[in-house]
């Protein structure tokens, strides 16, 4: 079950905690994996660690529209194979209350978190349509569904990503291509580690499963949706949040 032998995947934002877990699990299941990120030395190290001749690097700064357009072709070139799986995981935040939010904060988040995934989907779908197969998994956030004070830009981008994914799913479903979303809740990061104890307790109290998520919790969900076993699921959002929001 869930084997990906012979498949080729592109994972954006692969240098982050969640992205590297996703790249790792896809690779462990047999896929050829192209890691993309802005920090080339970091992703190169990760690729070297994964190894087995099935890990590749394609650095890209997704705030540049041209770079997003070019990334798919570059990824297929370095992997020497067309993409079967695209995981749009790269994203950034520019948090501040709306009254203080500058156009630049808004635009940058919408560009990287929504426009770039769209461009990558568009470029990848071209080949997938021809091959009559493919898996796209977009990484959104619990915030897309719940909103969050200080994250109007991020919430808009991630909610947009869900709407986009549903539309794409309808457009390409007849060709056996699925487009789904994984929406993580609070995941362990250096930022959540630094929370004061009182805040941490409060956060944990809002999560029925009583712990923060791990990058591997998200990666497992991605693996499932990227696998052949999930062939009858499309346009769905899989919430991975410990029960924090039951939607």
């Amino acid at each position: 079950m869930f084997r990906l032998d012979g498949k080729t995947a592109l994972v954006t934002g692969a240098s982050g905690g969640i992205g590297s877990a996703i790249a790792g699990i896809l690779h462990a299941q047999g896929a050829r994996v192209v890691l993309s990120g802005t920090r080339e030395s970091v992703i190169q190290q990760q690729a070297d660690k994964l190894g087995k001749g099935r890990a590749f690097v394609a650095a890209a700064n997704l705030s540049d529209a041209g770079a997003a357009d070019a990334l798919v072709a570059r990824a297929e070139e370095v992997a020497g194979a067309p993409l079967d799986i695209l995981v749009n995981n790269a994203g950034l935040t520019r948090d501040t209350l709306a009254l203080r939010m500058k156009d630049e904060d808004w635009n940058q988040v919408l560009d990287v978190d929504l426009a770039a995934p769209f461009r990558l989907c568009r470029a990848t779908l071209k080949g997938m349509l021809r091959r009559r197969a493919g898996r796209i998994v977009n990484i959104a956030s619990i915030i897309a569904a719940t909103g969050n004070a200080g994250q109007a830009n991020y919430a808009a981008a991630k909610a947009g990503m869900i709407g986009m994914s549903k539309s794409l799913a309808q457009e390409v479903g007849s060709r056996g291509i699925t487009v789904n979303v994984v929406a993580p809740g609070f995941i362990v990061t250096p930022m959540t580690d630094a929370l004061p104890d009182a805040q941490r307790e409060k956060l944990l109290g809002s999560i029925p499963l009583g712990r923060l998520g791990l990058p591997s919790d998200v990666a497992s969900a991605v693996l499932y949706l990227a696998s052949d076993e999930a062939s009858w699921i499309t346009g769905s959002t899989l919430h991975v949040n410990g029960g924090m929001a039951m939607i």
Binding site: K126, L129, R130, E171, V172, S174, R175
Partner: peptide, 11 residues
């Protein structure tokens, strides 16, 4: 052809 085919043809 369906609508997606026609788009693919044009491309």
């Amino acid at each position: 052809a369906d609508s997606l085919d026609t788009v693919e043809l044009v491309m």
